[in-house]
Amino acid sequence: MSTSIGFIGLGVMGTPMALNLARSGVPLVVWSRSSTHYDTLRNAGAIVAESLDALFSRCETAVLMLAHEEAIDEVLGRRTPLFAQRVAQRLIVNMSTTSPGYSRALVDEIHACQGRYVEAPVSGSRKPAEAGQLVVMLAGEPEEVDRVRQLVQPMCRDSLVCGDVPAALTMKLAVNLFLITMVTGLAEATNFALRHGIDLAQFAHALNAGPMASDVSRIKLDKLVTQDFSVQAAITDVLKNSRLVAEAARSAGIASPLLDASHALYGETETMGHGGLDMVAVIHALSQRSAQATGEALPGR
């Protein structure tokens, strides 16, 4: 088995993450269930595997950046004879966002097959991923975590060790709770300003010049002002993440009223057909609620 690193999952986040690894000189083998970015990765020096089995046969370490738990199960062949073949004597690095309970069960199954496991979820969306400015949270056995921390350096501006699995995913969900409620609040404030006839450029200036401004608020506010809904973090993905946070809160008996309100709004936005748009498209659900409250005719009616 070679020292190549396998990278599985080339979506909105996975592609720039893999590119940063390849451009840094990491010997990379990539595969995705569906990808249009293979040529870009080849040009950066990565090898495109013909199949999952070809990737696993070449790589001692496999990095997963997949959309959901079902995709991870499929790729690892979980609950099939393929699982032991794909994880035995390998290091599986889960950079996807899953529930802590899922990760806790997965690490036990991987260890039972003589494999190793590190969870390494990231904080950041497409733009930070492209710039190699993600924050990576790590959990697992100290020796393996150290290895992964070195590996992910080209992707991130910072990394932190959180302890044992699933501490990194629990940390990621806490970070996501703040992000989701903050961006939802920003969209609600923008809807408020818009409906009061406030010039949105002046509104943006007032916010950006004040103490509440951040890298995220500046980027998301600009998208709201210009009605640019091109995806950085999609509504559907944010809805999934908010569900994971809500479930983790319920299981621990923790109140999450702001997250619950946000979760409902993202669900409404997806129902409106905006699941593939950036999370700031939640303003559509806020606008719809405002129209319903005032008795305005909704679009298409």
Rank of each mutant, 00 (worst) to 15 (best):
43 N>E: 14
8 I>S: 04
216 V>F: 09
3 T>R: 07
162 C>K: 02
213 A>D: 13
72 I>K: 01
25 G>S: 12
253 G>M: 08
292 Q>K: 15
5 I>C: 03
300 G>R: 14
155 M>W: 00
102 Y>I: 06
238 V>H: 02
109 E>P: 03
243 R>I: 01
94 N>L: 12
281 A>H: 11
201 A>P: 07
124 G>H: 09
134 L>I: 06
141 E>I: 02
163 G>W: 10
72 I>N: 04
164 D>Y: 05
15 T>Y: 00
79 R>T: 08
87 V>F: 01
236 T>D: 15
179 L>S: 07
26 V>H: 02
122 V>C: 04
161 V>C: 01
30 V>A: 14
75 V>Q: 05
59 C>M: 07
164 D>A: 13
138 L>A: 05
291 A>T: 04
169 L>P: 00
140 G>M: 08
243 R>H: 07
41 L>V: 12
211 P>K: 04
70 E>N: 13
57 S>D: 15
11 G>N: 02
167 A>N: 10
84 A>W: 00
147 R>L: 12
81 P>K: 03
208 N>Y: 02
53 D>W: 05
4 S>D: 14
63 V>E: 04
47 I>N: 06
111 H>L: 10
93 V>P: 04
200 L>R: 13
278 D>G: 09
127 K>T: 13
240 K>E: 08
160 L>D: 02
229 F>S: 00
65 M>E: 06
242 S>I: 11
11 G>Q: 04
177 L>R: 00
143 E>Y: 03
273 G>F: 09
97 T>P: 04
95 M>W: 01
143 E>K: 08
230 S>F: 05
269 T>G: 09
165 V>H: 03
294 T>M: 08
54 A>P: 03
126 R>Y: 08
69 E>N: 06
250 R>M: 13
123 S>K: 00
71 A>F: 06
12 V>G: 02
164 D>M: 11
221 L>M: 14
255 A>D: 12
124 G>N: 04
128 P>C: 10
252 A>C: 11
36 T>E: 12
101 G>Y: 00
241 N>V: 03
60 E>H: 11
279 M>T: 01
281 A>Y: 08
277 L>H: 09
204 A>G: 11
199 D>K: 11
241 N>H: 12
18 A>S: 11
187 A>K: 02
220 K>F: 05
291 A>W: 06
94 N>P: 05
147 R>W: 00
271 T>C: 08
142 P>A: 08
140 G>Q: 01
220 K>V: 03
118 V>N: 04
127 K>N: 09
217 S>C: 07
107 V>S: 07
160 L>K: 07
202 Q>V: 15
27 P>A: 14
107 V>I: 15
214 S>Y: 06
164 D>E: 13
231 V>W: 00
222 D>Q: 15
19 L>I: 10
188 E>H: 07
234 A>F: 00
275 G>Y: 01
219 I>M: 14
269 T>P: 10
9 G>K: 05
161 V>T: 12
42 R>A: 13
61 T>S: 09
127 K>I: 14
50 E>G: 15
48 V>P: 03
173 L>M: 10
222 D>N: 15
186 L>V: 11
99 S>F: 06
60 E>R: 15
84 A>D: 07
202 Q>S: 13
24 S>N: 13
6 G>M: 10
63 V>P: 05
34 S>W: 02
155 M>E: 05
36 T>F: 00
95 M>I: 11
143 E>I: 14
282 V>K: 03
95 M>T: 14
242 S>Q: 09
52 L>F: 00
228 D>P: 09
